[in-house]
C-alpha cells in the first residue's frame, strides 16, 4: 500500500477520524503534566530565578512555529508536483496554527526578556527572525483568503510558500549579519555538550511532545474542516448545475 492513498480525501477522512480525539487528549495531557511538573517540581534557575519556567511554553512553540512552516513547504511541494488536494488543504490548515505558535513564542519571549534583559523587545537576530516569519505567515494566509477559486489559491500560495522559504532563510542570515544578539544559544541540540540542565530537560521534552501532538491534532482537525468545506462546495456546484 502506498502512502499516497491517504491523499484521497475519503480515505484521509476515514483514517484520521478516530485519531483526532486521541491526539487532542494526549497532547493536552502531556502539556498539563509537563507544565505542572515544570512549574512546581523543578527548582528555580540559580541565575534566572523562577522566570526560567516560561521555557516550557517558549521553546516548544518556537520549534513548532518553524516546523509548521517547513510542513507547509513540504505540503506545497507535494501539491505542485502530485496535485493531491489534501496536501494543499493541510498546508492551508497549518498556517493559522503556525501563526499562533509564532505569536506565543514572541509573547512568551517578551515576558521572559523583560526581567532578564530589562526590556520587552530587542532587535536581536532570533527575535527579529521570528517577527519576519510572522509577516510571512500573515502574507500567506492573506493570499489564501483573497482568492476565491480554491485550486488557484492553492497554486499561488504554494508558489509563495516556496519563494518565501528561500527569502526567509536569506532574511535569517541578513539579520544575523545586521546585529549581534542577546539571545542565548539553542536550548536543545543533539550535538551540544551543554544543554539545559537535566532537571529542566525532562519536563521540557514532555512539553515539546505535547505541543507536537496538539499541533498534529489541530492541523488534522482543520484539514478535515477544509475537506468538508470543499465537499460542500462541490455538492453545491453540482446541485446548481443539475
Amino acid at each position: 500500500m502506498s502512502i499516497w492513498e491517504y491523499a484521497n480525501p475519503k480515505k484521509f477522512m476515514a483514517t484520521t477520524a478516530p485519531a483526532v480525539p486521541w491526539l487532542f487528549a494526549l497532547g493536552i495531557g502531556a502539556i498539563v503534566v509537563a507544565l505542572v511538573w515544570g512549574f512546581f517540581f523543578t527548582p528555580a534557575d540559580y541565575r534566572q530565578g523562577a522566570t526560567v519556567k516560561i521555557i516550557y511554553l517558549h521553546v516548544p512553540s518556537a520549534m513548532l512555529a518553524i516546523n509548521a512552516w517547513l510542513m507547509m513547504l513540504v505540503a506545497s511541494l507535494i501539491w505542485l508536483v502530485r496535485r493531491h488536494h489534501v496536501s494543499a488543504l493541510a498546508a492551508k490548515a497549518a498556517a493559522p496554527v503556525g501563526i499562533t505558535m509564532t505569536l506565543i513564542a514572541l509573547m512568551t519571549g517578551a515576558i521572559w526578556g523583560q526581567p532578564m534583559w530589562g526590556t520587552w523587545w530587542v532587535w536581536d537576530p532570533r527575535l527579529t527572525s521570528f517577527l519576519i516569519l510572522f509577516l510571512f505567515y500573515l502574507g500567506y494566509v492573506a493570499l489564501w483568503s483573497a482568492i476565491e477559486d480554491p485550486d488557484t489559491a492553492a497554486d499561488l500560495t504554494s508558489i509563495l510558500c516556496i519563494v518565501g522559504s528561500v527569502f526567509a532563510v536569506l532574511s535569517r542570515y541578513a539579520v544575523n549579519f545586521w546585529t549581534q544578539g542577546l539571545h542565548q544559544g539553542a536550548s536543545l541540540s543533539l550535538d551540544a555538550k551543554e544543554n539545559v540542565a537535566d532537571v529542566f530537560y525532562q519536563p521540557l521534552l514532555l512539553a515539546i511532545a505535547g505541543f507536537i501532538l496538539l499541533f498534529l491534532a489541530l492541523v488534522l482537525l482543520r484539514t478535515r474542516t477544509e475537506i468538508r468545506w470543499r465537499r460542500v462546495r462541490a455538492l453545491d456546484l453540482r446541485a446548481r448545475r443539475d
Binding site: 480525501p9 470543499r230 465537499r231 453540482r238
Partner: peptide, 9 residues
C-alpha cells in the same frame, strides 16, 4: 464528471 472538485464527492 465534476472537474477538480470531483475528488471530494
Amino acid at each position: 464528471a465534476d472537474g477538480s472538485d470531483g475528488a471530494f464527492l
